[in-house]
Design a protein around this nucleic acid. Structure first.
Length: 281
DNA sequence: CGGCAGGGTTTTT
DNA sequence: AAAAACCCTGCC
């Protein structure tokens, strides 16, 4: 397998957290389903072992998805100055942000709204299995995530069969809109403000889903998606008004953490989510 | 701006 | 067993 030196990486925390729904673990390897390939990875001795299928050795893709070039140390040094964030980092060392495919992330987070992780994964798998190309890796069958041009032919009732409920209509409309606007290509050149307003104009995309896409696929680190957990985390940690508006909370976070807002949010989010799972203290 | 409906599964009571 | 919650958005 190929190797990349990649110190300070907690692969379990990163791939099982709420930013990606397309990784499955078999034995000691994770297999990630993308639209162009399956990525197989494991992490050992500060090294990422990886391979891509069916086209092998796609280094560019792996470097992009794991944000290999991101200066993790400098970011940690900066945000750990905050005592609360420092605790969250200590409890979740090696947590990282990914930079995933735009189209796939868009679909994934429309499906994710008001739902839970097992159900989200099930629906996304159904979508892949129904039209994605089959790829066999290590005796496991995977199905590539369909591209928007393939999904645009599906009707609302087709999406409904994937168990996405009322989000079927959002998906069906949104895919058409994105293709008509050529957004997948254009958005790569836009700044945060313009990219977000483009996303908000899409059916089924509100503040939270838009920010998930901007952070988890376009690597806009100056904001963080404020779902219920992240919102609760920030409000509790900094004793904010429980009724604070979405945009006001984003502004508060950006003033405090600037270009590392996304990383701060991710650490606090995981810290609160895992803490409540153990439900101690 | 505020309030609520909207799949269906998981979690909590 | 029932109810509430669930990484929410569109519509009124």
């Amino acid at each position: 397998m190929n190797r990349l030196y990649f110190p300070k990486f907690n692969i379990d925390l990163t791939l099982n957290g709420g930013q990606a729904f397309n990784w499955q673990k078999f034995d000691e390897y994770y297999y990630g389903v993308f639209s162009e390939c399956i990525i197989k990875v494991k992490y050992e001795n500060e090294t990422l072992f990886w391979q891509t299928y069916p086209v092998q050795n796609d280094l560019k893709l792996v470097e992009k998805i794991f944000r290999i070039d991101f200066d993790y140390e400098t970011m940690l040094a900066e945000i750990s100055k905050d005592e609360f964030v420092n605790v969250a980092i200590k409890k979740n060392p090696g947590l990282r942000l990914l930079q995933q495919d735009f189209d796939q992330t868009l679909i994934s987070f429309i499906v994710s709204q008001n739902s839970n992780i097992p159900k989200i994964k099930r629906s996304l798998n159904l979508i892949s299995e129904s039209i994605g190309r089959e790829i066999e890796v290590d005796d496991h069958k995977f199905y590539l995530f369909p591209k928007l041009v393939e999904l645009k032919y599906l009707k609302e009732s087709d999406f409904f069969k994937f168990g996405v409920g009322y989000r079927a209509k959002y998906l069906q409309k949104c895919i058409k809109e994105v293709l008509e606007k050529d957004l997948s290509n254009r958005i790569l050149k836009l700044n945060y403000k313009d990219a977000k307003s483009e996303l908000l104009s899409l059916h089924g995309v509100g503040d939270k889903v838009a920010d998930c896409i901007l952070v988890f696929s376009l690597a806009f680190d100056e904001v963080t998606p404020l779902d219920l957990w992240a919102r609760r985390a920030f409000i509790t940690t900094y004793s904010l008004d429980t009724k604070i508006k979405y945009s006001d909370l984003l502004e508060f976070i950006n003033k405090k953490f600037g270009k590392y807002s996304a990383w701060t949010g991710q650490f606090l989010f995981e810290y609160f989510r895992l803490k409540s799972n153990q439900d101690i203290e």
